[in-house]
Simulated scan of single mutants.
Amino acid sequence: MEQEKTFVAYYRVSTDRQGRSGLGLEAQRESVERYLSACGGDLLNSFIEVESGSKKQRPELESALAECRRKKATLIIAKLDRLARNVHFISGLMESRVEFVAADNPHANRLMVHMLAAFAEHEREMISQRTKAALAAAKARGVQLGATGKDRARENKEVAKQQAEELRPVIEELVSGGIVSFSALSRALNEKGIPSSKNGSWHPKTVSRLCNRLQVQFGGLE
């Protein structure tokens, strides 16, 4: 008789507010439960990380991996995005020699996971570089960076516009893929590991301002 496969779940939410409210967490749990029901797996334990996907210190992830090693279990995540698609983390996961599976893409092999991580990290780096280039261009045109009053307002507006344009392809792709609200769009951006203008998490209000700059109209606040 084949031995039942055992799993340890790892969930991540981007903010304390999401952790307290369960926003995003419930969908992750449902995805994992569907996968386990389909394969007949047994969930031994679960760990919840509450922090930004860009941070490298993940104590709950380390605890989940240690649990997997102790009990010879498989680490299960709801989506590959939950590991922030970060090359550093993916490499660490590979080196841990812990078997893992993503409920949204259970057939993803190691090469595919590495490629997803590399593309996402490249996307974040390009956005950061273009933001710095926009600041440098503004300074070259005489905008006093760090000034107060009208100069600061003009500087902020110019940089915000540049950042918005850099994100236009991402926003348009998500909207065309069925995103129908600012709340859903903010979750999608956070899951992709794309930082906001202040290198923080996205929220419905910040996404609303972004869409206004891009003149993208759809859905509304939830």
Rank of each mutant, 00 (worst) to 15 (best):
S46D: 13
K72D: 15
M115I: 15
V143W: 04
Q129S: 02
E172F: 11
K71E: 15
I76K: 01
L221G: 09
R97E: 12
M112V: 13
S91V: 12
R187T: 11
I171V: 14
P169H: 13
Q215T: 13
E123M: 02
E172G: 03
R69Y: 00
K205N: 14
E165Y: 11
A108N: 06
Y35L: 10
P169V: 10
S21E: 09
P59E: 07
A27T: 09
I48A: 08
K139G: 08
T6Q: 07
R97C: 05
L93P: 05
Q144H: 12
R69A: 09
G219L: 00
V113D: 01
A160W: 09
Q162H: 11
G200N: 01
Y10I: 07
G53W: 01
V113K: 08
E173N: 13
G177C: 11
G178R: 03
N86G: 02
Q144G: 00
N212A: 13
M94S: 11
K71Y: 10
V101W: 05
A133K: 04
P59W: 06
R141W: 00
S176M: 10
T74H: 00
S181N: 11
R168P: 08
E191P: 04
N156P: 03
A64C: 03
N199I: 06
G19Q: 07
G220Y: 12
F89G: 10
E121Q: 11
H107S: 13
S54F: 07
C39T: 15
M1I: 08
L23D: 04
H88E: 15
P195Q: 01
E165V: 11
A64S: 01
V87M: 06
G146V: 04
V50T: 12
